[in-house]
Design a protein around this nucleic acid. Structure first.
Lengths: 122, 122
DNA sequence: GTAACCAGTAACCTTTTAGTAACTATTTAT
DNA sequence: ATAAATAGTTACTAAAAGGTTACTGGTTAC
């Protein structure tokens, strides 16, 4: 096993776990998409709807990120029998497990912003 | 304000917070360095020691990541009066606030790994 | 028939990130 | 004088990530 650190061995496995997580959830849009789908769970979220509402994402990136998330079972893809055809994406139960991580990131980011604002007051 | 999403407005601010966090903690080595310094808090962690023990990191990347972390007050830099001169890096109290995030990422990564292993059994 | 809508794909380009190798400056020991 | 150690820097390169534009194929409304 290739190690990332000298000693203690537990640290190496922690760091591999961190990297695994970031492999699945990293990238510019993945957490955003998960958050989007989680907060709109009751709606029918089609490709076009997602693309319209997540400002700035291109079809290419949305396709790619959704494929990656689907491969990791975070997201379910379903072709709807509509004319013209549309495809619904929804979050899976497994995808919902990312909620805790997202919450921590949001929390920390907000605290960080407040910290910066307070530092600039004098 | 440039928004990332169409409505609800709270979502946009959540997503900005997530991005802020990843700006500070993202990158290949930052979480690894924080984790390293946190688990070796009682030691004198010099540049060379860190470079020797975090396998694979180059001087250039270590310099850069430490500078970034210092700029965000996650890490403290102190020149020691030794011959030859050496520089000690240590985690700050603020840097320690990343612990919760790191723990969540480790936890999720480990659960994800077990999930994959169980799926491949048949 | 033609324009519009959906869900993509393909080719190409730019930016960001990371890696490599050589080098600087200072000090000490041989 | 030279080698070794510390803490970097600089220039160049490669790889990864992301963006842009134009396009496909099927269907419906005009």
């Amino acid at each position: 096993m290739k190690t990332l650190l000298n000693d203690p061995p537990e640290c190496t496995s922690n760091l591999l776990a961190m990297r695994d997580t970031l492999d699945v959830l990293g990238g510019k849009w993945k957490l955003l998409i998960l958050h989007y789908l989680m907060t709109r769970d009751h709606q029918v979220n089609t490709f076009k709807k997602i693309q319209r509402e997540i400002i700035g994402i291109s079809a290419k990136m949305l396709t790619k990120e959704l494929k990656d998330l689907e491969a990791n079972k975070m997201v379910k893809r379903e072709v709807l029998n509509t004319r013209p055809i549309s495809v619904e994406y929804s979050i899976t139960d497994y995808g919902r497990t990312s909620k805790e991580i997202i919450e921590k990131l949001v929390e920390w980011g907000n605290r960080h912003r407040h910290k910066l604002l307070n530092e600039n007051e004098y």
